[in-house]
């Protein structure tokens, strides 16, 4: 059975309308109008126990809103969300005890107190038995290298140290699912790397299900075999990262290098996009076309030196995708 199931989920926010300028300010003294914002628009997916899923999308795509519905903070406007077989909002406390949540941009640690004090308070709130707490704390302290700062006030920590502490705090009670909202935002390269390796390890070795939102693809490449991509509240893609290219219709590039310029070459299986004489670039039409097909069609008799197949950069694929969408939207 799926550990998380979302079906036809929608979330609509009401926001007061603002009027610009002096007259507008006077006007809003007396009137109150609302605009409706559809942050999540008919999303369905299922997540199995032990999966690591990346929830990807640009700002305002409704990623955080979806996390908030799965953690019981928000109630869907329509559709259903089930986490561990329960509706999260109505079973908020039971649900909260079995999940861990990390918000990248808002700390759950007590600002003026040492890290250890926040951990200790969580021990009471989550009712963690003392031996298990000690064991988990020791393990997490080692894995995340926190021993040097666990007794320092949170306000003195670097962002990277704080994020490690946040993640450790969310794992102290051995949650079945770990939700992370933008866990690597603002971190430097080294800190990002530590967080990614750690999360991948927690998922692999302890079987903790991980759902993370991000707009950094490297997070997904290193932690999450599965990707859910959203934009404008709608689901764009759900599947393995390597299938994303095909799904989004992007094509692989094939580069053929010859000893000498063989002259113009036209092929049915591949489309010539750039001709540098001795080096020619082709686009492969579909995932089914293999290099072998191309080479077979090309036949022998050419002074072929090297064959290079370039997978498109995933970052670029997504960027192109969004750009196309913006352009498409610009045309009335």
């Amino acid at each position: 059975m799926a550990i998380i199931a979302a079906s036809g989920v929608e979330k609509i926010f009401r926001q007061p309308k603002r009027h610009a300028g002096f007259g507008g300010a006077i006007r809003s003294l007396f009137s109150r109008e609302f605009t409706e914002v559809r942050a999540v628009d008919g999303i369905s997916f299922k997540i199995e126990s032990g999966e690591a899923v990346g929830y990807l999308g640009p700002n305002g795509a409704g990623k955080s809103t979806m996390i908030k519905m799965m953690t019981g903070i928000l109630v869907p406007s329509s559709g259903t969300v089930e986490v561990l077989g329960r509706e999260p909002h109505n079973n908020r406390i039971t649900n909260a005890a079995e999940i861990g949540v990390v918000f990248g941009q808002r700390s759950q640690l007590w600002w003026d107190l040492p890290v250890r004090d926040s951990f200790d308070l969580n021990r009471h709130i989550y009712d963690i038995p003392a031996p298990r707490f000690t064991e988990n704390l020791a393990r997490l302290t080692t894995m995340l290298d926190m021993s040097s700062y666990i007794d320092r006030p949170v306000r003195q920590l670097s962002l990277g140290q704080r994020m490690r502490a946040e993640i450790a705090m969310a794992l102290l009670h051995d949650p079945k699912i770990l939700f992370l909202d933008e866990p690597t935002i603002g971190l430097d390269v080294v800190a990002k790397d530590v967080v990614r390796k750690f999360l991948a390890e927690v998922n692999r070795d302890r079987g903790t299900t991980i759902i993370l939102t991000t707009h950094d693809l490297v997070d997904i490449e290193e932690i999450c075999p599965r990707l859910i991509m959203v934009d404008d509240g709608k689901l764009l893609f759900d599947g393995e990262l390597k299938h994303l290219r095909t799904a989004l219709g992007s094509r692989r590039r094939l580069k053929l290098e010859f000893g000498s310029d063989p002259g113009p070459i036209a092929l049915k299986t591949a489309q010539l996009v750039a001709d540098e004489g001795a080096a020619k670039h082709f686009l492969l039409d579909s995932e089914q076309t293999s290099i072998l097909d191309v080479l077979t069609e090309l036949g022998s008799g050419h002074d072929l030196k090297d064959v290079k197949l370039e997978e498109p950069d995933i970052e670029e694929v997504i960027r192109t995708f969004y750009q196309n969408k913006v352009q498409a939207g610009a045309v009335p």
């Binding site: 002096f22 006077i26 003294l29 007396f30």
Partner: peptide, 11 residues
């Protein structure tokens, strides 16, 4: 004076 206009509830 103008910036106070934004807070109608305060009025």
């Amino acid at each position: 004076f103008q910036s106070r206009l934004a807070y109608r509830n305060q009025v």
